[in-house]
Design a binder for these strands. Structure first.
Length: 271
DNA sequence: CCATGAACCTGGTCGC
DNA sequence: TGCGACCAGGTTCATG
């Protein structure tokens, strides 16, 4: 489900609500939800930990405790939220109970999501490439790093160790806005392509954050509130509909096994 | 180094 | 209604 804007939406929403809350207990309801597999360490040390900050690294939601970190990844269907009742929800995979009797619950239909309970953030930073909102992310960084690779641009943008935070929806949107064919090899992009890519990445993500992200299937962030960026999508999911720019038909293909939408009239392969 | 496919899971939708 | 096939916003691992 979530890409950078959706994760940022969850972080923005959770921070003021759970900051300074104190954890009194923890319950794991699906074993694979704990990625770090250190249940004994977790059970022994989680009690009385206080939440001091909530922030984002790539698509990870980092919950900083006074000692140690909780790093959640929502994958496809994860939903992390504060609530007062965890009964009657068979999709809750784990929860932390706070001293005020509310909970931080993690719900996840497909069970792909989960979290690390770790002493430092090394393993997270190791997986994560440059954030699009990092000041180093610009045309010249892209130019340098796209040239030294020779990969299909869509596949490269999906690679979180290269740029972190992009996913299937926003990549299609960014490539459409930049008039770049998803199968273009990264080293074949010209300066103009790269300049558009850089600008559109930042502007599309920023705009989506302002809309609280995109809800296609079941992304919610605050008691079932949904993101409204779905109304702004230019290509994603518009198979067989007219391109908003040139009126030709948007087609769907597979790139890296992912459904990929584009307009083959305005998005051409460079070679 | 790069591409591909499978695996991890469940639910929704579409066609017959 | 039921059943099978296919699809889904992500990541990781094994295999050419």
């Amino acid at each position: 489900m979530p890409e950078l804007p959706e994760v940022q939406t969850v972080v923005n929403h959770l921070l003021p609500i759970i900051k300074n809350k104190r954890i009194v207990s923890f319950k794991l309801l699906w074993r694979n939800t704990l990625y770090s597999k250190n249940i004994a360490f977790l059970s022994k040390t989680i009690k009385n930990k206080k939440i001091v900050n909530v922030f984002r690294i790539g698509k990870y939601i980092i919950i900083e405790l006074d000692v140690n970190y909780i790093a959640f990844h929502l994958r496809m269907t994860g939903y992390l939220y504060n609530c007062t009742n965890i009964k009657d929800n068979k999709y809750i995979r784990c929860y932390f109970k706070f001293s005020d009797s509310s909970y931080l619950a993690f719900q996840d239909i497909r069970k792909f999501g989960g979290f690390y309970y770790i002493e430092n953030l090394d393993i997270i930073y190791k997986k994560i490439g440059l954030d699009p909102f990092d000041s180093r992310f610009n045309s010249s960084w892209l130019k340098k790093n796209l040239k030294i690779k020779k990969r299909k641009i869509k596949g490269l943008l999906l690679d979180q160790s290269f740029i972190s935070g992009l996913g299937n929806i926003y990549i299609d949107e960014i490539l459409w806005a930049s008039k770049i064919h998803p199968n273009t090899l990264s080293n074949m992009l010209n300066n103009k392509d790269i300049s558009y890519l850089s600008k559109n990445t930042k502007s599309i993500l920023k705009k989506s954050i302002n809309h609280h992200g995109t809800t296609i299937i079941n992304f919610t962030f605050d008691n079932m509130k949904t993101g409204s960026y779905k109304n702004e999508l230019m290509v994603y999911g518009r198979n067989n509909e007219k391109c908003f720019r040139c009126d030709n038909i948007i087609i769907k293909i597979k790139v890296f096994g992912r459904g990929t939408y584009f307009c083959k009239i305005c998005q051409t392969i460079r070679n």
